[in-house]
Write a protein that binds this DNA or RNA. Sequence first.
DNA 1: ACCGACATGTAGCATGGGCTACATTTTAGA
DNA 2: TCTAAAATGTAGCCCATGCTACATGTCGGT
Lengths: 138, 138
Amino acid sequence: MPRRSNTFVKTRQDHANETAEDYVEAIGDILETQPTCRVKDLSAKMGVSHVTVTRILQRLSAERLIDKDPYGPCTLTRKGAAMAKRSRRRHQLLLDFLLHIGVPPTDAARDAEGMEHHVSDATLSVMRAVLQEDSNRR
Amino acid sequence: MPRRSNTFVKTRQDHANETAEDYVEAIGDILETQPTCRVKDLSAKMGVSHVTVTRILQRLSAERLIDKDPYGPCTLTRKGAAMAKRSRRRHQLLLDFLLHIGVPPTDAARDAEGMEHHVSDATLSVMRAVLQEDSNRR
DNA sequence: ACCGACATGTAGCATGGGCTACATTTTAGA
DNA sequence: TCTAAAATGTAGCCCATGCTACATGTCGGT
């Protein structure tokens, strides 16, 4: 996924980080609705094979974002939980904003997923401000 | 780049399409400011090595998005120009919207780059509507 | 006309994320 | 308890995108 201009060069590392955020967030979501998060839960949620999930979980584990034993469920470390929380907030704010300006829920949900990793803090702040302003107004 | 939930599974194909759009749009941009678009122009603009550009241009050529001879400059085919135009509009609309709601120009530019491929037509329509509405209002 | 500098192409490697096929472990039910 | 099904892991493949190092083509100036 290339980026234009001298302002920003996207590396594989960035890419891997996005994936990490996606998975950590997904794990967080799952752990809110059920006691454990298993490979099969993630493969269902992410729409990929269990093999892909397994490999990615190995990386997350190496990066100390999750704890996981072979054949066991996974849990978030403090670090992982923090990342999940940040990611979740960002995601939620984006979704709220899209809904607020009138995007149909289905599209808003999909777009929020995709845009999540590409929205700067500056833009998020503006979105938050717009939401607050308009909620005060009524 | 994984996607969540049953609603959407991102494939390698999607990925390649994004890259194609990015490059075709970049070629279009370059051809507006200079008579020819060369590999080195693209590698500078995209921030990658000339090798990466060369390989991607081969794919674009195979897909009939560009015309290119070895060691020569590249031009957009009708198909490529159409894709570039669509991409450009989308990009511009997104950028205008971000600026409109008050995102600082530098951040807006970066975010528009990243979000471009993740914003649905539904959301773009809403953004267009917001822009028009507010321009009428004043 | 040639030669050197620059542009472009090619070989070959890495990494990430996708898969199928097969191996192993867990676990539930007979 | 023991065995079959389900879950997970491993081997090994594909493709996209990134790179460096090296090979080849182009072009301008002497």
